[in-house]
Structure formats: structure tokens, C-alpha cells
Simulated scan of single mutants.
Amino acid sequence: MSYRDYVIAAYAVFALMLLWDWLIPKLQIRAALRAATLRQARRKATPSPNPELPLSRD
């Protein structure tokens, strides 16, 4: 491998790492927001417990 090929490969790896460092946090934030939205929707969808019934059978 010549010096030019080495430099091109090094810049390509550097560009891939920059892309990775930019993309992965955005995907993680999107997944966390989606999970929070789904969790909130599940909480709203579940009926509140009946206040006349005890929560535990102690």
C-alpha cells in the first residue's frame, strides 16, 4: 500500500468515525423519546385503580 492509499484510508476512517459520533447519539435520543412517549401512552391507557378495593391482600 502506497502512502497515498494509507492517507485516503485514514481520512475515510476518520470521516466514518465523525459520522458515527454524529449519528449514534441522535438515534439514541430518538429511541429514548419514543420509549418515553410509549410509556406515557400506556400509563394513560391503563385504568386507575378502584379506590374502594384494597391494593394488597394483607
Rank of each mutant, 00 (worst) to 15 (best):
M1C: 10
M1Q: 09
M1I: 11
M1W: 02
M1Y: 02
S2V: 07
Y3R: 10
Y3D: 08
D5N: 11
D5K: 07
Y6A: 07
V7A: 15
V7H: 09
V7D: 12
V7F: 07
V7Y: 05
V7P: 08
V7G: 08
I8G: 11
I8D: 15
I8F: 09
I8M: 14
I8H: 10
A9H: 04
A9P: 01
A10L: 09
Y11L: 15
Y11F: 15
Y11C: 15
Y11D: 15
Y11Q: 15
A12F: 13
V13P: 01
V13T: 13
V13Q: 14
L16F: 03
M17Y: 07
M17Q: 12
M17P: 04
L18C: 13
L18N: 05
L19Q: 10
L19D: 07
L19V: 10
L19H: 08
W20L: 07
W20T: 04
W20R: 03
D21K: 14
D21G: 15
D21I: 13
W22L: 13
W22R: 03
W22T: 10
L23H: 05
L23T: 12
L23W: 06
L23K: 10
L23G: 11
I24F: 14
I24W: 12
I24H: 05
P25Q: 02
P25C: 02
K26A: 13
K26D: 01
L27P: 00
L27Y: 11
L27I: 12
Q28G: 06
R30P: 02
R30V: 04
R30C: 04
A31L: 03
A32Q: 02
A32M: 09
A32N: 05
L33W: 06
L33Y: 11
R34P: 00
R34C: 00
R34Q: 03
R34I: 05
A35F: 02
A36W: 09
A36N: 08
T37K: 13
T37L: 12
T37G: 04
T37V: 11
L38I: 10
L38R: 14
L38G: 03
R39F: 02
R39Q: 12
R39N: 13
R39L: 06
Q40S: 08
Q40E: 12
Q40A: 05
A41Y: 09
R43C: 00
K44T: 02
K44F: 09
K44L: 04
A45S: 03
A45E: 06
A45N: 04
A45H: 02
T46F: 06
T46P: 00
T46S: 08
T46C: 06
T46G: 01
P47N: 00
P47V: 00
P47Y: 04
S48V: 10
S48R: 11
S48F: 05
P49A: 03
P49C: 01
N50I: 00
P51K: 03
P51D: 03
P51Y: 06
L53A: 08
L53K: 05
L53F: 12
P54N: 00
P54E: 02
L55S: 12
L55H: 06
R57I: 06
R57Q: 07
D58F: 11
D58Y: 06
